[in-house]
Simulated scan of single mutants.
Amino acid sequence: MKFKLPGIVTAVGAAAAMMAAVCAPSAASAATKSTDALLDVSPYRMGNLYPSLTWSNYVYYKTIAGTDHYDIIVSGAGKTQTVSSPGYGFEKTGRQRAVVVNLDPCVSYVVKVGARDANGNGPTSRGRLANSIRPGGVLKASAKRGTDPTTATFTWTPPAVRGHTNEYGMSVKEVVSRPTPLSYQTELVRMSDNKVVKSYTIAANTITGSVSHSVTGLDRKGAYVLRVKATNAWGTCDNKAGRILLNRVS
């Protein structure tokens, strides 16, 4: 039976099979749900606060009696790495904490925790999503020329994943609840010769609605592309730059 991870669509079987699964959960399904409840996994992305914790991911979890060690399983961008850890030190919440380092700040990861006996056997939780610490690409992008066709307005909405600024000493809940300020780096490219003719930086803000950017001095018979990269305190992801097309006026 396939389990549904956050943000990942799994295959769905025939209606009869699905009804059977609902009416009579398998032992594996029950065990997984039980493991989820016992471990209560919570991933938490970290930036470069310390040289030894480069682009790391803290993973908080509860202990299960009789467990020899825990496998922290982190998957993303086609790669999986596993760190075995008893956790180090109990947090005030009664949970333990492990850390996985050298992750890509532009990649979102699925995190699982397995409770293992001395032979390496034991149940594994379902995956929890740890979003990228740098922002993703802008959404709902559009471009429209003004009444004067040498002017245009480009609009977009912020990325679904803004990343976060995790100041030292903040709790996990504080980090998640605070909106991350984003700035935007833009480059206007003339398509006829692929030349950058204008570039701007839109100052950091916490806007959650549409962002607008007006441009003047355009060639009415020229087509342009505005490249937009969202940036937070941890940087930007070049591979997630948005491209907004402005067509020429016939």
Rank of each mutant, 00 (worst) to 15 (best):
Gln96Glu: 01
Asp71Ile: 00
Thr63Met: 06
Arg95Gln: 14
Ser34Ala: 15
Ser84Thr: 10
Ser108Ala: 14
Gly137Phe: 02
Arg134Met: 15
Tyr88Pro: 00
Gly136Lys: 11
Trp156Asn: 10
Pro51Tyr: 05
Thr153Tyr: 03
Val101Ile: 12
Gly127Ala: 15
Asn102Asp: 14
Tyr50Ser: 12
Thr147Ile: 09
Ser56Met: 02
Ala143Thr: 11
Val138Trp: 02
Ile64Phe: 03
Ile64Asn: 04
Arg45Ser: 13
Ala152Tyr: 09
Arg97Pro: 01
Thr124Met: 12
Gln96Met: 14
Ile64Pro: 01
Asn119His: 06
Ser108Val: 04
Pro123Ala: 08
Asn121Phe: 12
Asp71His: 11
Leu53Asp: 15
Thr63Gly: 13
Lys144Val: 15
Thr80Ala: 06
Val110Met: 07
Glu91Cys: 07
Pro43Trp: 07
Lys140Asp: 15
Asn102Lys: 10
Asn131Trp: 10
Lys144Thr: 14
Ala77Lys: 13
Val111Met: 03
Tyr50Asp: 15
Asp117Leu: 10
Asp68Phe: 15
Thr93Tyr: 01
Ala98Leu: 03
Ala37Asp: 08
Lys112Trp: 06
Ser75Gly: 03
Thr82Phe: 07
Ser52Thr: 12
Val111Asn: 05
Thr124Ala: 01
Lys112Ile: 00
Thr147Asp: 15
Lys112Pro: 00
Ser142Pro: 00
Ala143Lys: 01
Leu139Ile: 12
Asp68Trp: 13
Thr82Gln: 08
Asp71Leu: 03
Gln96Arg: 15
Thr35Val: 13
Phe90Ala: 13
Asp117Gln: 07
Arg116Glu: 01
Glu91Asp: 12
Lys112Gly: 00
Arg126Ser: 15
Thr35Gly: 05
Ile72Asp: 01
Gly66Asn: 14
Gly120Thr: 07
Val41Asp: 05
Phe154Thr: 10
Val111Gly: 04
Trp55Met: 05
Pro51Met: 06
Leu39Val: 03
Tyr109Ser: 09
Ala65Leu: 05
Val100Pro: 05
Thr67Arg: 12
Arg145Ile: 12
Trp156Met: 11
Asp68Ala: 15
Trp156Leu: 10
Pro123Cys: 08
Gly114Asp: 01
Arg45Cys: 03
Thr93Trp: 02
Gly89Asn: 09
Leu39Glu: 06
Gly87Met: 05
Ala115Asp: 00
Asp117Lys: 04
Gly76Trp: 05
Tyr58Met: 04
Leu129Gly: 10
His69Val: 13
Thr54Gln: 14
Pro149Ile: 07
Gly78Asn: 09
Tyr44Trp: 13
Leu103Gln: 11
Thr67Trp: 04
Ser42Tyr: 11
Ser108Gln: 12
Tyr109His: 10
Ser142Phe: 00
Gly136Pro: 06
Leu38Lys: 15
Asp36Trp: 08
Pro51Thr: 11
Gln81Met: 13
Tyr70Cys: 00
Leu103Thr: 10
Asn119Val: 01
Lys62Phe: 09
Ala65Val: 06
Pro86Ser: 10
Lys140Glu: 13
Ile64Thr: 06
Gly136Phe: 09
Val59Thr: 13
Thr54Leu: 11
Gly114Glu: 03
Val99Met: 06
Asn119Ser: 11
Leu49Tyr: 11
Tyr50Asn: 12
Gly137Asp: 06
Ile64Cys: 01
Gly146Thr: 07
Asp117Met: 07
Lys62Glu: 00
